[in-house]
Write a protein that binds this DNA or RNA. Structure first.
Length: 479
RNA sequence: CGAGAUGUAGCGUAGCUUGGUUAUCGCGUCUGCUUUGGGAGCAGAAGACCAUCGGUUCGAAUCCGAUCAUCUCGACCA
């Protein structure tokens, strides 16, 4: 049976997606604005999701030999200026501390916008021999970028993230690391967040400042806009050369190592909200939901109801399921239904005397707003499997949405049409920066998200300039 | 950072054009009783330096200026 949207307190998704998003992050109590523009307070429910992501990612990272470290949050300006492309990329959005105590600093301190420089500076000190390699380090921290327009979780002046920074002896090892980590990011989407990504290499235009190649995972939001959710970079030897990192190789000669960096941020929370959410609020994938199952008693003062609720709760707890029994009888069941729907709790068990007479309870699934009566034993024994099924169905639903929004096009007119409607357009492309700028202008914000296929020798031409196409690329409007 | 809109209690708002008693209403909050199968009912109560700073005026939520914040559209970016 279907449940109608009774919630009048948030804007409808289709009416105004941006306002819907703002309503949801506030009403679901994920964050509260701070007194400084672009900086937000992460409330317990959003931070709990982040912790689940951290736990899962740490496990996968460590399987690849990653070790966690922590580096300073400030970079001396003199050090920062060493890598030219990198500086040009980040300088405009740096927050800089110019006084310490009452003294003006002779070398101002830049609050890290990313830590390639700090890691390079560290590696210079601790890497001397091929025996010191590889270095596969990661840190969990926040970085600051002085953004002009900000939105909770999607773009903030400060955001939480992980940044991996690695050093390898051989070029192939570094490339492989960048690709391995991209796979891990993809897996985090598929197996943890129920989000399907498009993944691949960035074009020259879109790659990271100072990188040789950048790889990306891109998610498609419900409104048809793309969201870059994580990137891995093959940095080549650029930073190592700029910072003088070298090591004595197996033949005794001095060699320059190959570097990578990779990161994803709390923007993933924004992706979860915008991929899965609906007009009743948040819809959380079971694996990251702070509360996976909520039990709502009806006529909770009756012994039979009370006992059934406690029994179910104990059983689920013993199975390691994050369960909440809301037996506050000053709130009506209807209020609780709406409240936990707003908060995105994946599964609700309604326990009332009428059902109990038949040995049943009602299971309500958040992602499709369905309700069905089931036997109590079923609710006790099968919840874990049901949560898995919910995850799978949420993933399939998002995958279907993604697949239905990929269109092959071979002209600028078609490209425009697809991007206006929302979704990805796959088109042959010459790869030139100028062409990319031009397309962005014509389509009012359409950018390349990643390369679908590189073309070795093809008859295809770039619809923008008419030159020979070197690749087929995903275009989209992005957050 | 450019263009536009908005800012009155926790949330949503009336009042502003044409300045003049104690700033309107709903939701939420608190207390009590009755309730509890989709945001319960009745009775009572608390809650607002009208975003901030300054100006005009006998008098400002209302007029003027600046600043800040949020939203939309650009530019920039994870």
């Amino acid at each position: 049976m279907e449940v109608k949207n009774k919630n009048k307190s948030i804007t409808s998704r289709d009416e105004d997606f941006a306002q819907w998003y703002t309503d949801v992050v506030k009403k679901a109590e994920l964050m509260e604005y701070s007194s400084v523009k672009g900086f937000i307070n992460y409330l317990p429910d959003s931070y709990a999701i982040w912790e689940e992501i951290q736990n899962y990612a740490n496990k996968l990272f460590k399987e690849k030999g990653t070790r966690n470290v922590y580096l300073p949050m400030v970079i001396p300006a003199s050090l920062f200026n060493k890598e030219k492309e990198h500086v040009e990329g980040f300088a405009p959005e740096c927050l800089v501390a110019t006084t310490g105590g009452n003294e003006e600093l002779s070398d101002p301190l830049i609050i890290r916008p990313t830590s390639e420089i700090l890691f390079s500076d560290l590696y210079k000190k601790i890497v001397n021999s091929y025996r010191d390699l590889p270095k596969i380090f990661n840190q969990w921290c926040s970085v600051v970028r002085w953004e002009k327009t900000t939105r909770p979780f999607l773009r903030g002046s400060e955001f939480l993230w992980q940044e991996g920074h690695c050093l390898f002896e051989k070029e192939e090892e570094a490339r492989q690391n960048a690709l391995d980590m991209l796979e891990i990011y993809d897996k985090i989407g598929r197996d943890l967040l129920a989000i399907p990504f498009i993944k691949g290499k960035k074009t020259e235009h879109e790659k990271f400042a100072g990188a040789r190649d950048t790889y990306t995972i891109e998610a498609l939001m419900h409104d048809g806009k793309a969201l870059q959710a994580g990137t891995t970079h093959d940095l080549g030897q650029g930073f190592a050369e700029a910072f003088g990192i070298s090591f004595q190789g197996r033949e005794g000669k001095l060699e320059v190592p190959f570097q990578t960096s990779w990161g994803f941020s709390t923007r993933l929370l924004g992706a979860v909200i915008m991929v899965h959410g609906d007009d009743n609020g948040l819809v959380l994938p079971p694996k990251v939901a702070p509360i996976q199952v909520v039990i709502v008693p009806i006529k909770g003062d009756q012994e039979i109801v009370k006992n059934a609720c406690l029994k179910i709760k104990e059983s689920l707890l013993s199975q390691g399921i994050r369960v909440l029994l809301d037996d506050d009888d000053s709130r009506s069941p209807g209020w609780k239904f709406a409240q936990y729907e707003m908060k995105g709790v994946p599964l609700r068990i309604e326990v009332g005397p009428r059902d109990l007479e038949r040995g049943e309870v009602v299971l309500a699934k958040r992602y499709d707003n369905s309700k069905e009566p089931v036997k109590i034993e079923y609710a006790i024994n099968e919840i874990s499997a049901i949560l898995d099924l919910i995850h799978e169905n949420m993933y399939q639903k998002a995958l279907k949405h993604l697949q239905e929004h990929i269109t092959d096009v071979d002209s600028i007119e078609e490209l425009n049409k697809v991007l206006d409607k929302g979704g990805y357009a796959r088109m042959a492309f010459c790869g030139d920066m100028e062409c990319e700028d031009k397309i962005k202008e014509i389509t009012k914000g359409g950018t390349t998200r990643c390369i679908y296929k590189e073309l070795a020798d093809s008859d295809l031409v770039c619809p923008c300039c008419g030159k020979k196409a070197t690749m087929i690329v995903y275009f989209a409007k992005a957050y």
